[in-house]
Design a protein around this nucleic acid. Structure first.
Ligand SMILES: [Mn+2]
Ligand SMILES: [Mn+2]
Ligand SMILES: [Zn+2]
Ligand SMILES: [Zn+2]
Lengths: 161, 161
DNA sequence: ACAACGAATGATACTACGTCTCAGTTATGT
DNA sequence: ACATAACTGAGACGTAGTATCATTCGTTGT
């Protein structure tokens, strides 16, 4: 879905642009927000960082269970909710009415998603400013965020002619 | 979600821009696609056209049952699926990970959605062409569609200062 | 008007995904 | 080490959506 509140983005202290966060960086974010650092959460974060593509909660739960079958379902859902609220994870629309999580990167991003394999390519360009100002003026809405993304077929998923 | 395949939009023969379709217009669309015209479907379409805001399947089911409690749940879901596939209905993202249906209008549209009351204001401006071409070139994706929308608070839902 | 046929329907059972509760465990500050 | 609150996993539960299937209904050809 990539609802990006215009001024907000995950805070990775000192992270390079385009660098994916690592486990301890995300744990620092949790800490900073008053959450504790636990073994189940570490396992979940490690599993998240293993994902090459956007993932659903169910998909992640299965992957987590491969690492630790005793880790509770509720813990996975609870952790996803927290990481989503902290903007460590954001959402992309992968099909009409279906969204999935991706690891957030610093800065304002949107995604180009492959409808074949599910790959999500982030990009930073965002041509909505002028339109947003115009809509604010004409409708008197207080605009909070926007959703922008492209769906297509990546080179690897295109039929060879 | 408003995944608008760039060249596609609902085909309402002779409809004015900005005119909402009526029941028989939508029935014509069904007919044209080889579907039959039935009383349950008419009830569902009437109920859809009564909705002032984007609606979920559950919300619609409840509204349909107010009109005809004997109308089957499966029929409502099946009809929504058909109308979605025919682009009579499209989806808007109403919150992180949640989308709802709106009646499609002719032409290429996106929406500005109120996070308070759920109102969806359509607009036709779409500033993505240049970016889309650039992304096609740099990534070699075959881009099929895009999602663009704004979320904010409508004038009526804004706190009075 | 009628018959024939496939499409569509609604009841019901079922599944998948997510939530809630709660007793026991663990991280954290002192 | 202790006290405390946060966190956990088990399992019951709820809800939204799907599958099945016998019956009904819309459409088409006569
Ligand atoms: Mn943007
Ligand atoms: Mn557009
Ligand atoms: Zn692909
Ligand atoms: Zn509003």
């Amino acid at each position: 879905m990539s609802v990006s509140s215009t001024p907000s983005s995950p805070r990775y202290p000192g992270a390079d642009r385009d660098a994916r966060p690592d486990v301890s960086t995300i744990e620092d974010v949790l800490h900073g927000a008053g959450y504790r650092s636990t073994r189940p959460r570490r396992t979940i974060i490690e599993t998240i960082l293993d994902q090459a593509h956007p993932f659903t909660p169910e998909h992640l739960l299965a992957a987590v269970h491969r690492a630790d079958p005793s880790l509770g379902r509720a813990t996975v859902y609870r952790t996803l909710e927290i990481l989503g609220a902290l903007d460590v994870l954001t959402r992309v629309v992968v099909a009409e009415g279906h969204s999935a999580y991706v690891v957030g990167l610093p800065g304002h991003r949107h995604h180009l998603v492959c409808s074949g394999c599910g790959a999500a390519v982030p990009f930073t360009a965002c041509p909505v400013d002028h339109l947003m100002a115009e809509l604010s003026r004409t409708t008197n809405f207080a605009i909070q965020s926007h959703v922008l993304q492209f769906i297509g077929v990546c080179p690897a998923c295109q039929p060879t002619p």
